[in-house]
Amino acid sequence: MSKQPLPVVDLSAVACCAPIAARPMDDDQAAAVAPLFKALGDPVRLRLMSMIASVPEICVCDLTPAFDLSGPTISHHLRVLRDAGLVDSERRGTWVWYRVRPEAFRQLGALLDIPTAARAAE
């Protein structure tokens, strides 16, 4: 697995893209969107994302015990999600609280939308 950091994603780059079923992406669009999927492509991060998205906000102190991983490892995964633009965080005292960025998921959902006509053609 690559240890290269993911670039911080500009969500406006995702918003520019038509649904993938509408027309093929060009190289720049694919490069802009790939980090979002890469961030979600890890089972730990996907599970963290699910936990964060299921509540209005959640403390890292509630996330860490759900995994058989060290605190620094969980922090790394949360940083990847944050750098990808999928979550926001706020430090309150000694703890960090996380919440989903709904616009990122709306844009990903729009990107993955398959029109009804395409479903009927299957």
Rank of each mutant, 00 (worst) to 15 (best):
P115V: 06
R47E: 12
D26F: 04
R92H: 11
P5W: 10
A15P: 04
G41L: 08
L112V: 00
F67N: 05
V87H: 10
A30I: 03
A32F: 03
M1G: 15
A21G: 01
I58K: 13
L108N: 04
I58A: 07
R23C: 14
M51K: 14
K3R: 10
L112Y: 01
C59N: 10
Q107E: 15
W97K: 09
R23L: 10
A32T: 01
Q29P: 02
A34K: 01
P19Q: 02
G71H: 08
K38P: 00
V87P: 06
P72V: 06
R106Y: 09
L86E: 07
P24H: 12
I52E: 10
P72L: 05
D28M: 11
I74Y: 04
A120D: 06
G71N: 11
S2E: 14
D62N: 13
E103W: 14
W97I: 04
L6K: 04
S89V: 00
P65V: 08
C59S: 15
V60P: 01
R99Q: 14
V87W: 05
Q107S: 12
E122A: 14
D42E: 13
P35C: 05
P35G: 05
G41P: 03
R47A: 13
M51R: 15
A84H: 02
S75N: 12
D68P: 00
A66R: 15
A21R: 00
L63D: 07
L6M: 12
M51L: 15
A53L: 10
